[in-house]
Design a protein around this nucleic acid. Structure first.
Lengths: 246, 246
DNA sequence: CAAATAGTGTCTGTTAGACACTATGGC
DNA sequence: GCCATAGTGTCTAACAGACACTATTTG
């Protein structure tokens, strides 16, 4: 049976959904956007924003952008958005066979408490609450969030993803807080300050612009053209108690 | 319109396929397994092995393992296999709406020229020929292969993926040739030798075992328990002509 | 012995991390 | 002046890359 069709046999048709993991930083905490489901299954539960393909002519990425607009009022063309993967276990949706393509989107920290449409409920929820299971999610959405967070954590090392958490311009301290929050680690301000500037194309000065807070005003920067960080910013190891090499 | 269903509206049903990018090293060259298509569309063209889901109860990963067995006679439980992503552009298959979930599999270099079943034709093809377009592929399979190769190249740095290209046990020189071939770069044998051993959990000695070739016999190793490389093995930069920092 | 491959020692320039110090703002 | 935050200098230990050297096999 080398080929896919030879008998009068028909492969199964499945519903295709798109789910969005929209991550942001709010008040130095790592948050994900959740929607309260208005219908069965899992009515009343929290879930990732998303939905089915609109029609047979809609691409999955296109559908992700549409859902981003509909459910979070965000413009995906101005955000970082990338595909996370397909989730296709047969039992993941009680309605029947649904394959979901998950997308990871990163938004700058928006001060508004919630998202766009008249969705019953939409809330930024601390990622920790989801990962720990204290905020249970519908379907396999906890797994999807875990994968998204892991992806974000490692991509911070090798790509300029961190700038997607910031606004158009940002200070180096703001950028550092992105790293610290997503990694859950403290970084030396002084070393970070230079390290980040030595990576070619990562960030570039934004005019003579300044910005005030409490202390000395900081220089501002914008994202540079680099798509990959050379050298990478390495995540500090959790700390080693005993020695075991050689 | 907060939720996915409210009108008597039905989302489109789509066909779900699985495609496999099976990579290996043969005679120090990076190869991918291709199948000659026996049916339309693209009859006679080369394509990735794969096929539709068998039935509504089959998971996509399960389907990938099945296709790996059917089309390449490989046991996926003994191979490295991971999901690459979903390819869901509406026009990617002329038969209609087909969403494909691609998997990346890494096999140790098998001496046999070809794969398992009675498939019309199956051939290990140098990856370069695919990437350069000299070996044109059906559908969007060239793109999928390009993504797979890129994934493999970067995963060599941070994961023990390279050991999946080797047999159960291997010498450090064999492991080094994996890196050199996949990266297309030369590595210093001596420095590689130690570097690789200093990564905790990457490789561990395989008994007092040895193996003969031409010169001094080499120690053999097997893959260790590490799932991530700390510190990573960094890919040498292609070489910089001009300076441009600071 | 020579050839070939495996494995070790060691030097040198660069880095990561620690942390003292200076700069510039608000009060 | 004081406090807070931004930004610089500099020391040290570790590391990467280069490459001379030793070791162990086949023929």
């Amino acid at each position: 049976m080398p080929e896919i069709e030879e008998d009068p046999w028909e492969p199964p048709l499945v519903l295709v959904a798109v789910d969005l993991v929209i991550l942001t930083l709010r008040a130095s905490t790592f948050h994900v956007l959740l929607i309260e489901r208005g219908i069965e299954p899992y009515q009343g539960s929290w879930a990732l924003p998303g939905g089915f393909l609109n029609n047979a002519g809609e691409g999955v990425f296109e559908a992700a952008l549409r859902e981003l607009k509909e459910e979070a009022d965000l413009d995906g063309t101005r955000l970082h958005i990338e595909q996370l993967g397909a989730y296709g276990e047969p039992e993941r949706d009680p309605r029947g066979r649904v394959l979901s393509v998950a997308y990871l989107a990163i938004a700058p920290g928006l001060p508004e408490p919630v998202a766009g449409t008249d969705a019953s409920g939409a809330a930024w929820t601390p990622v920790e609450q989801v990962l720990s299971g204290r905020a249970p999610l519908a379907f396999d959405h906890q797994l999807i969030v875990a994968d998204a967070v892991e992806r974000a954590r490692t991509k911070l090392e090798h790509s300029p993803l961190a700038t997607a958490f910031c606004g158009e311009t940002f200070t180096i301290a703001e950028l550092r807080r992105v790293y610290e929050t997503v990694w859950g680690a403290e970084l030396d301000e002084r070393n970070f300050y230079r390290k980040v500037q030595r990576v070619p194309g990562f960030i570039e000065p934004a005019g003579t612009d300044r910005r005030a807070g409490k202390g000395r005003p900081a220089r501002t920067f914008r994202a540079g053209p680099a798509e990959v960080l050379h050298p990478p910013l390495t995540r500090p190891e959790p700390h080693r108690e005993s020695e075991e090499e050689r």
